[in-house]
Each structure stands twice: as structure tokens, then as C-alpha cells.
């Protein structure tokens, strides 16, 4: 059980960073933390005691102890999506820096109401 709760703790740490930090880059780091904690959680879902990797290394091998490969495939997809979002966030952060000359979100406040 402990690893699962560690993942949730990691999610909360990431959320804390997203909510309280003022520097855009730190927000992005917090965000990556949330993402990877959830990926870790998802990978843990496929855990099986005394499981072996779901790869056939010799012909006619027993497949009963294979861990569930589906969560790993899903996590890979989620990582790809995370890559895209992180890249876009960083690109936005760079553009924001070019315009505002600061990474501090308290100074980036023109929209309100």
C-alpha cells in the first residue's frame, strides 16, 4: 500500500508547487511532478508479486507470471502526451519572458475581471 500513497503524496507536492510558486519555471517543474507521480501510480497498478517482464525470450515459455503489460503501454502514451504539454509550456514560458521580461506570475497580470 505504501508506494501508492507515496504516489499520491508526490501528486500533492507537485500541486503545492503549482499553486504556491511564483516563478513560471517552478510551476512547470511542479506540473511535471504531478504528471510523473500519476504515471508512476499507473505503472504500479500493473504490479504482480513475483511477476516477470511480459517479454518472450525463448520459444514455448510459460506466460502465467507475466505482469500486466497494458498499464506500461498506457503510461508510455501518457509520457508522450506529457512531453508535448511540457514542451508547449516551456515554449509559452519563453515567449512570456520575451514579452514581459520576467518569470514572476505576480507581475504578469493584465487580464482581470
Amino acid at each position: 500500500m505504501i508506494p501508492y500513497f507515496a504516489c499520491i503524496l508526490l501528486v500533492l507536492i507537485g500541486l503545492y508547487a503549482v499553486v504556491t510558486k511564483r516563478n513560471i519555471v517552478r510551476i512547470i517543474i511542479g506540473f511535471s511532478l504531478v504528471e510523473y507521480a500519476i504515471n508512476l501510480f499507473f505503472a504500479l497498478v500493473g504490479f504482480k508479486r513475483e511477476g516477470i517482464p511480459p517479454i518472450i525470450t525463448e520459444l514455448g515459455q510459460s506466460r502465467s507470471n507475466f505482469v500486466d503489460p497494458l498499464p506500461q503501454a498506457l503510461v508510455l502514451t501518457a509520457i508522450v502526451i506529457g512531453l508535448a504539454t511540457t514542451a508547449l509550456m516551456l515554449a509559452l514560458a519563453m515567449r512570456i519572458y520575451e514579452k514581459y521580461r520576467t518569470f514572476d506570475i505576480t507581475e504578469i497580470r493584465r487580464l482581470r475581471g
Binding site: I27, I38, T85, L88, R110, L111
Partner: peptide, 27 residues
């Protein structure tokens, strides 16, 4: 421009938290 970038970043942070919640629910 100034507004678009700010709105885009804000939208992205909040929207991705929503996406993370959906992913956690699916897990």
C-alpha cells in the same frame, strides 16, 4: 501578444490539472 500569452499559460496550467485528474481517475 501580452494578453494571449498570459491567458494561454493560465489556461494551460488549469486545463492540465484537469487532464491529470482524468488520468488519475482512469488509473
Amino acid at each position: 501578444d501580452f494578453d494571449e500569452l498570459e491567458a494561454g499559460f493560465k489556461y494551460m496550467v488549469i486545463g492540465e490539472i484537469g487532464g491529470a485528474a482524468i488520468l488519475l481517475a482512469i488509473a
